[in-house]
Simulated assay, not measured.
Amino acid sequence: MKIVALGLRGIPDVMGGVETHCEQLYPRMRRLAPDIDITVLARKPYVSDDRDAFDGVTIRPIPAITHPYFEAILHTFLGLIHARFTERADVVHIHAVGPGLLIPVAKLLGLSVVFTHHGEDYRRDKWNGVAKAALRFGERMAARFSNRMISVSRPVAKSIVERYPDLAGRIRVIPNGAALEAEAGTNAAEAASVLAELGLTPGRYVMTVARLVPEKGIHDLVEAASGLPEGMKLVVVGGAQHGGAYAEGLLAKASDRIVFAGAMPRGRIAPLYRNTALFVLPSYHEGLPIVALEALAMGARVLLSDIDANRDLKLDAANYFPVGDIEALRRKLADPASIPMADTEFVLARYDWDVIARETLDLFRSLGKVDGSFRPARLVSADDRSG
């Protein structure tokens, strides 16, 4: 079986939840099934031409424009033509509801389609009304025409079932995983180097990892940072894909106590997780937040907004604050040590990428058994695996 992946910018070390998902998933699928060929059709602005493989996965950069509205859809269209006539794919794995718009084209080209729903992107403030309508239609096309559908989030799957009750049997919940390896960030010299570059002291900073876009709520965190204890800093890891006024406004607030570190490779973020006093994710919108899973896996204290996707992690009530409530967030930041520690071993077991890869591989293999139509699948999530 030859699988071609579309809908992501590229791998490895490309900023974004979908990209992290693919970087962790596909190499594991290849190790489990060496007979399966997996090719990622990356976007050239994000992956250099000399990158042709990553951990057993073929990387094929193809042309793409850098544009907030047309980048993903145009790259997906070109990618489908490439997958059909150059790669000779058996299956395309399409990620996110925007690229989902073109699933009917994939079917017309004779390709089987597995679609992964990473979140209700049409709820993001950055999109105008036309874009939101197009994204909703992309979700509908994915639900109607894909051969298999995966949701990384149980709340998202339930939302889809509520809106499209006839599609209830077509959705399989396979979550994101805790992406960083257990030993990541443990090298003392490397950790000291990363912290020194940013002017940080272990245990004397609060951090977040996110793109600089409104739905991540970084503006709330920056405003609430005034509540941090004396001498404690806020570190924001992540950049802005297309720049813009929002990101520029945030970056203008950099100071001795508010550090914008920019995008960083995951290997260099690990020491920050391990040495932070608190990880905060103030998002207004998520699918299933990989960065929160990473922080939990590294043993960090975690504070999350109380949106459904974050509450699906089932942490203690004290690990949440009302989304958008800056005063509540400021009160939490005043005493980071009061935020409960989560059970790291439980997180690693519940969101195990090896188990996730095996479940995803089983879903792909089932395509050969059902002749292009859905086999009804129950809603399965990490809850079922953990008993």
Rank of each mutant, 00 (worst) to 15 (best):
S338I: 04
Q24R: 14
P282L: 09
R172Q: 14
L212S: 03
G110A: 07
L272D: 02
A42I: 10
V92Q: 10
L228G: 03
A53M: 15
D354R: 12
V114P: 05
V114D: 01
L288D: 02
I11W: 12
A210H: 03
G249C: 03
L251I: 13
I174D: 00
A317S: 14
F279T: 12
G287V: 12
H82N: 12
V91D: 00
A337C: 10
R268H: 10
A5G: 07
R140C: 14
L333A: 06
G238T: 11
I38H: 06
V114T: 02
L379S: 12
I171T: 05
G110E: 10
G56F: 10
T360W: 13
D90M: 03
L348E: 03
S305I: 00
S159L: 05
A188G: 10
S338E: 13
A247Q: 09
A189S: 13
S146N: 02
G387T: 08
L167M: 13
Y164L: 13
Y46H: 04
T201Q: 03
W353F: 14
P155K: 01
R172T: 06
L212Y: 12
K314Q: 15
P12V: 01
G138P: 06
K253C: 10
E359R: 15
K126C: 03
L361E: 00
M1V: 06
L8Y: 11
S48W: 08
E23N: 04
L363V: 12
L25G: 07
H82E: 11
V380Q: 15
A168H: 15
L272I: 01
Y284R: 13
R154E: 14
D90G: 02
K126H: 06
A83V: 00
Y26W: 13
S283L: 15
E327L: 10
A53S: 15
F364Q: 02
L41N: 01
R266Q: 08
R301A: 05
R350I: 15
K158L: 11
E215C: 04
